[in-house]
Structures are given as C-alpha cells and as structure tokens.
Amino acid sequence: MSCISSAACIFCKIIKGEIPSFKLIETKYAYSFLDIEPCSKGHALVIPKYHGAKLHNLPDEYLHDVLPILKKLAIALEYNIDSPEGKSYNILQNNGRLGHQVVDHVHFHLIPKNTEKDGLIVGWPAEKANFDDLSLLHKELLKKLED
C-alpha cells in the first residue's frame, strides 16, 4: 500500500522515497526510521502511512502496526543501551503546537534513555486533583464515549 499523503509533508516524502531515510521497519500501514536530530543513540520515529495531522485524524487500521513496531525497535535497541539499570526509553506522541508537535503528520518517537543527561528530559507539572471536579469530568467523558 502506498502512502495516503500530502504533497508538501516531509514524512510523506520520506515514505515515498523522495527524501532518503535510515529505514528500519516498513509494513503495509507504517514506516519507521532513525531520527536525524536524535535526543539519544537509537532515537527512532514510527509514522503511519496515512497523512493525518493529529492522532484522532487517522483511520484505525493505520495504527495497527505502530505498537508492534515500537516494541520490536525497543527490543532491538536493548543491545545498544549501556545503562547499568538496563533498558529505559520513552515513547512520545505529540498533537498540535501547544502539545509540541512540529511536523503535522502523526508520528511516534522511540527515545532510548541511556543516561540521566540524554534522551527525553521531562518536567511533569502534576498537581493534586479536586475529586469533585474529577468526578464531574468522569461523568462528562463517559457520556461522550457512549454517544
């Protein structure tokens, strides 16, 4: 299956072979390759072969191969991780500019975490939830999920 694409999208051009890449795994619905601006050794991308800007824009079948590919890559990268703690990595998928998405084509990063200073550096601004507010949100979401 060829890429359902946008003519201007860099990832669509990579899938079609118009831009070279260090391809790792390709299936009917997805394509993976090494990132050329990596956060750490082994940083890879997995992209669906359907041009959708955000996750909710994709037909479900284009997501079927994503997690199995990420798992295979994580297993393969295990042998390149020198950390005494063993294999550590992040899987990251951003949506929209406020969500730190730069390329408007759904993509997943597999980012090995070999040391404290490489890979993904995360600051998580968590705060205690108000359980009354959380309960209202829960009910609202369940209603939307039923529709």
Rank of each mutant, 00 (worst) to 15 (best):
M1C: 13
S2V: 13
S2T: 15
A7C: 11
A7K: 15
C9Y: 04
I10F: 02
I10E: 02
F11S: 08
G17T: 11
G17N: 11
P20H: 09
F22Y: 12
I25T: 10
E26Q: 05
T27L: 06
S32H: 00
L34S: 05
D35Q: 00
D35N: 12
E37K: 14
E37V: 13
P38A: 00
C39W: 13
C39S: 15
C39G: 10
S40F: 00
K41A: 13
G42W: 04
G42R: 07
L45Q: 09
P48E: 04
Y50C: 08
A53Y: 03
K54S: 11
K54T: 14
H56F: 15
H56K: 13
N57Q: 14
N57P: 10
N57F: 15
P59T: 09
P59M: 09
E61T: 04
E61N: 09
E61Y: 03
Y62D: 09
D65L: 03
V66D: 02
V66C: 10
L67Y: 08
L70R: 09
K72W: 02
A74N: 07
I81A: 00
I81S: 04
I81Q: 02
P84Y: 06
G86S: 05
G86H: 03
S88T: 12
Y89A: 06
Q93R: 11
Q93M: 11
N94Y: 06
N95C: 14
R97A: 10
Q101F: 01
D104S: 11
D104A: 11
V106Q: 01
H107M: 06
H107A: 07
H109W: 08
H109F: 07
L110F: 01
P112S: 00
K113L: 00
N114R: 07
N114Y: 00
E116I: 03
D118Y: 02
D118V: 06
D118Q: 00
G119M: 10
I121C: 04
W124M: 13
W124A: 08
W124C: 09
P125H: 14
P125K: 10
E127F: 10
K128A: 14
D133K: 05
L134P: 03
L136G: 05
H138W: 08
H138N: 12
K139Y: 12
L141Q: 06
L142P: 02
K143W: 06
K144F: 04
L145V: 00
